[in-house]
Amino acid sequence: MTIDWYFILEKLILISGVLALSLIVAMYSTWGERKVAAVIQDRRGPNRAGPLGLLQPLADGGKLFFKEEIIPASSHRFLFILGPSLAMLVACMTSAVIPWGDTLVIAGQEISLQVADINIGILYIFGVVSLGVYGIMLGGWASNNKYSLLASVRAASQIISYELAMGLSLIALLMLTGSLSLKDIVEQQRHGLWNVVYQPLGFLIFLVCAFAECNRTPFDLPEAENELNGGYHLEYSSMKLGFYLFAEYINMFVSSALMASLYFGGYSFPGMDSLGLPHNVVTILGFLALFLKILVFLFLFMWVRWTIPRFRYDQLMRLGWNVMIPLALLNMLITGAIVLFRQG
């Protein structure tokens, strides 16, 4: 069995590229978050560090690095360190199956802009997302603080509740596409209409669940700063806190990319194939189109955060179990009936 070094090199470059991209986007999401918050609240936002405050994320990161590392004496030391690392790792893992673009042809070699085109792409994402809660749970428990513990309990039940509705809303989509590979789903939308046209309700459920899975307002109960003092990352300082905050933004970025790929055509854009441009140019334009869609979703995440107040915990659970899951089931039934009707 020979090892294809060229293949490994290609994938390594792609993986580092995707990782660097997610980290940079996450970095600038913090800047974007503050800017969006500011303009929505009639303020100016960060504008001192560099032009338009663009160096602010670097300043923030530098500050986090130089802060004192505090590990509480009564904490479970190993798990305390494992928590943020796990959160970061899981957040980065999801980006592996997202098709960032079509293929690039360099020197006769076709290079796919997707780290791994596995035929169970969506299930892989589900698996990884369901692991995402461990970072929060372990961190919250290992801190040995009642607020952190409450936060981790909240996080666990919230994420499990909304994962169900998310999965059910996706099943309806999968009935239409008939494939679990994200690349196939995007390619289908390239030649037809975007899936959001067929699945408006499913998209809405998916969107709400994505907010809940990313712990974003109005579902940010695990880190509710005014009742739990920051929740699961209450005892964290320095870069371990940074990891938690960063993981949230990477999660946001990846779920934006996922929503864009699943429901809004991913890297395809209308009139993509009739431009008559070289293949590589079209691919790069497609990547930019995907990026634009991601930015729109990121803005939506922030816009909602600065508009809607947090849910109460019982409201959150009622919404998840009494509204989202029945709606998702209904959506699934209707979609199934229509698919069956059109086949038969």
Partner: peptide, 11 residues
């Protein structure tokens, strides 16, 4: 909130 993006900044 979207309308406020375009309003005069108080700062």
């Amino acid at each position: 909130t979207f309308k406020h993006i375009f309003q005069k900044k108080a700062t």
